[in-house]
Design a protein around this nucleic acid. Structure first.
Lengths: 190, 190
DNA sequence: TGACAAATAGTCAGGACTGATTATAATAAT
DNA sequence: ATTATTATAATCAGTCCTGACTATTTGTCA
């Protein structure tokens, strides 16, 4: 993924050095990646050694020795290959939170309920943020890219809403479970 | 995540060696993790060195030198800590496919459409598989764990359905875009 | 019964990733 | 004018992860 982003951004915005790439990624792609600075340097150097990028060390004078990377022809070809590979990937999400429910018997009674309630609050806010961010973005992109922007944002929006519904449903399920258990206990106690 | 699973399974099913742990994870947790065998050995050894596990090399006679791991008191405590940490994690998904739309101008006209159509087919099948798998699982777990099983499976189901809807909507959006462009071209050509 | 595949059990070298750190320049605060 | 803070720019050591490999035992079926 990361090489794809770096190559694509270098193609779109021209030669940059590591720190600039990181800022560009933060601005442009923060919605769907959080890449750390050292990781970017790692890939820049690797891709240079593979001939996908050309490095130009900034002459002394500007002290901190910047290295500006330019995409090569081989780099453009590699970018195309990475895009084609991406066309083959399938949706296969992982939900760490599932571990909580799988090991539920090791948690305090109320912990899961509180977790879900907190989740509902957070996700409600997150959905609002996404919608705001979408509208802000739509306001300044070209007519031509609006469809793609909408597709990307709706992707996030739809999954956040799905997660929100799931959290609400799960609260319900746990509530009903408790009710059933109480009933059963009363029947028995009778 | 992985240490949590290993500790939890060792707690639930008793002492096991690496290959057994892998099989147990494959049976029990394949829906929400795909962990590779060497990764399991890595964590088993690491956790042993940290005192979370106790290793017993199987005496010669049984040739391939098995190492059976047992969870220690420190391991149980660590498991609790990991569960507590998990309670703090937030939903923050990443969608590699977004890269396709972000860099859409570098793809062939029809590639994205075909990608989305293939996605719809795959996801439709995936949803069926999940539902089948859910029913199979519900059939043999105790009454008590049914709620948790439902919560975990509905988590996946809901997100797969969200992805399916998103793919359909995106096809629509791209269709409408094309229509708009055709209209515009005709107006101009007139 | 011999031979071929599959399951069992594990190792190792190398690649990917990032927290912590270093160092300088620019800006703000007092 | 001096100090503190933030932004810029990069490196390094150490952790995590896994593809490829080794080796044995257990079917399996011809």
């Amino acid at each position: 993924m990361i090489p794809l982003y770096i190559l694509g951004l270098l193609l779109r915005f021209g030669p940059q050095h590591g720190y600039q790439v990181k800022k560009t990624i933060a601005e442009q792609l923060s919605d769907f990646t959080q890449i750390k600075l050292p990781t970017i340097y790692y890939h820049l150097e690797k891709m240079e050694s593979e001939g996908l990028l050309e490095a130009a060390r900034e002459k002394p004078g500007a002290r901190p020795e910047k290295t500006v990377y330019t995409i090569t022809e081989a780099g453009k070809k590699a970018f195309g290959t990475l895009l084609d590979e991406l066309l083959q990937t399938e949706y296969r999400p992982a939900f760490p939170a599932d571990g909580l429910f799988y090991f539920a018997e090791h948690l305090q009674e109320e912990a899961l309920n509180e977790y879900l309630k907190r989740t509902v609050v957070r996700l409600t806010r997150a959905v609002e943020t996404i919608q705001k961010h979408k509208n802000e973005t739509l306001a300044y992109v070209s007519e031509d890219s609006k469809t793609m922007v909408e597709i990307i944002f709706s992707h996030h929006e739809t999954h956040y809403l799905a997660e929100l519904n799931w959290a609400r449903e799960s609260l319900d399920r746990m509530e009903r479970k408790k009710e059933r258990e109480t009933e059963y206990a009363e029947t028995k106690g009778h």
